[in-house]
Design a protein around this nucleic acid. Structure first.
Lengths: 336, 336
DNA sequence: AAATCTTGCTTCATCGATTGAGCAAATGCG
DNA sequence: CGCATTTGCTCAATCGATGAAGCAAGATTT
């Protein structure tokens, strides 16, 4: 890799030499506490000018080595390429910056090994705090970080060892299910039990959404068999092939479907396309996730939007109050 | 901010003490060149074991301070919350990691000031290289980095001072326009001139796409007035209000539209919704961008997918060959 | 047996910024 | 004028990891 530096970087010692002063004075001026260190205004201005002329950039590595807190805040995220996590990451960066943190983000593509590796890398970079978003094994991350004295917060998926901020999956799923059922009633004249597609049976969110899904059926006194639930994972391909199999299996099939994320929705729609004569107009879909373009194009697709701004606001609140008790904050999602 | 470290971190000195050896030996063992430094296998194993027991994590700040290359590779990106940039960032991270780099990514929300600030922060973190993706002023970034001896590469939008990797916007736009025109022919029986919505008149991609747009009209001998072009920026709100105005302005309006990104498409579709009786079925849309859900749901929406894997492959090729000549690589986009 | 080589470590300076301690000159006070 | 205080700065240790240089003990050669 030919990435050799072109020239040596300017340091505070170079600046000190040019200004005819000491590195210590330069440091004090450039990091803003020259008043506290009783540097004269003249010298401060001179140093600032020379630093600018020389295009000086602080060596963060050296600086952080001396300081106790890095103000780096790490976030581990399963995917970028998705409107939900994309908006989490984008807003997280903005808010972190506003609050004086330096955000360090890593995408783990739902790979548990990468999650741990990423956490380890963050510890090496001396992060002050790690946010584990949608982590497969958040407690593992918490343990690892705790060993280095670093606090963690879980986002989107909860853990037992650190505070967790998640959507109110039960209430959201119950209401979403209700809406799909109503839509079935309107469009097909009857309320059949729905199918539940996507997610992992073991993950907390899927379990809670299933509970809401079941509750909504119970609310309408609709009997729901367990075999209507297809928790085949989130990936589009898995949903697609699961539906393919299902359709040819002889098991009962529903026109109404609860889809567990836009990622999964992609697979469901692809299946609809391939399924031939039937268009998505023939289905009543609901998705526990939000995508503005789907909201505009999918006429029969109900959506639940997780309240990302509220979740992140709550997260920074916890950080600011130093509240790291392992309890769960449930944020109500938004239905359009 | 209550993010105080819980306990002191384990250092190589602690490990040295525990192992009854020197910090230097510990360092040699843990960074893998103990053979070169002639440390015995026994001691190496002992140190490794103790390091593991203690949950030791390298202090990257200290390590980087000593090394000449950081192997950190920075990327500046305008948005995360978008399928195109989302996939760029996700694939960039994966590829960078595979090639032994540590990816550091910052989102600037198309704010030129933030772009510069982000570049400066990256220099502070001693990045070996900066990728400016879709930057408003890539040359400014290149100049800033060059002053610190750091190379840059432009992605998505070209600059004059560093190598640039962009889509073949002209060819892509020409073909996309052709397809929209053909679709108009099929669906409405005639080929009217299309409208061009979104993008900034000054940006290279928009200019090239406009050139392709015009060429395709010329190919079909369709006269195109300049007032069919609405380069109102990328933001959905801007496109929406621009179309609103346009519709009531008395200027000619087309059923066929070339939309400059999925971000802009959001505004166009929102306008279609509000425009009342007319549904998007009444339009022939084409979008210079790709979103899998739009591809599935938007029956009348042609899409051009920029070839992100090819662009990034080319980018890492440049890095590996140390090729930092300021020339432009055009990557053909993919039409479905 | 002396000379040389090899093995397996340790010592110490270094990277660049930070900060407590210290010191000389200027100023204030009685 | 003499002493205390304030002002404006410098010195030097330090953060943790790295690696060149050095050194002692054992192995090998002549």
């Amino acid at each position: 890799m030919k990435l050799d530096r072109q020239q040596k970087r300017t340091t505070i010692y170079d600046l000190a030499e040019l200004a005819g002063t000491s590195a210590s004075a330069v440091s004090a001026v450039l990091n803003g506490n020259w008043k506290k260190r009783r540097i004269s205004k003249q010298l401060a201005e001179k140093i600032t000018r020379i630093a600018e002329e020389q295009g000086y950039a602080l060596n963060m590595q050296a600086s952080l080595l001396r300081r106790e807190k890095s103000h780096i805040i790490g976030m581990i995220v399963p995917k970028y390429d998705n409107r939900y996590f994309g908006s989490i990451v984008e807003l997280f960066e903005t808010m972190a910056r506003d609050k004086g943190f330096f955000p360090l983000i890593t995408c783990t593509r739902r790979d548990p090994a990468l999650e741990i590796e990423a956490a380890r890398a963050m510890l090496s970079y001396q992060v002050d705090c790690v946010i584990a978003t949608g982590a497969t094994d958040p407690d593992r991350v918490t343990e690892l970080c705790a060993a280095a004295g670093v606090r963690t917060i879980n986002l989107d998926l909860p853990g037992k060892l650190a505070p967790s901020i998640i959507s109110d999956n039960f209430a959201g799923a119950r209401e979403l299910t209700r809406r799909i059922l109503v839509s079935c009633q309107h469009r097909f004249g009857s309320m059949e039990p729905l199918m539940f597609v996507g997610g992992r049976g073991g993950d907390h969110n899927t379990m809670e959404r299933l509970r809401g899904f079941r509750q909504a059926h119970a609310d309408h006194e609709i009997h729901l068999d367990d075999d209507r639930v297809i928790a085949c994972g989130y990936a589009p391909e898995k949903a697609q092939s699961a539906l393919m199999e299902r359709a040819t299996s002889g098991l009962p099939f529903s026109k109404g479907m609860f889809v567990n994320s836009t990622i999964t929705l992609e697979g469901v729609l692809r299946w609809v396309r391939l399924a031939g004569p039937v268009s998505e107009q023939e289905f009543a879909l609901g998705c526990f996730d939000y995508d503005p373009l789907v909201a505009l194009l999918g006429d029969n697709i109900e959506m639940v939007r997780q309240d990302v701004p509220a979740m992140l606001a709550r997260m920074f609140e916890l950080i600011e109050h130093g509240n790291f008790e392992p309890n769960v904050s449930e944020i109500p999602p938004v239905l359009r």
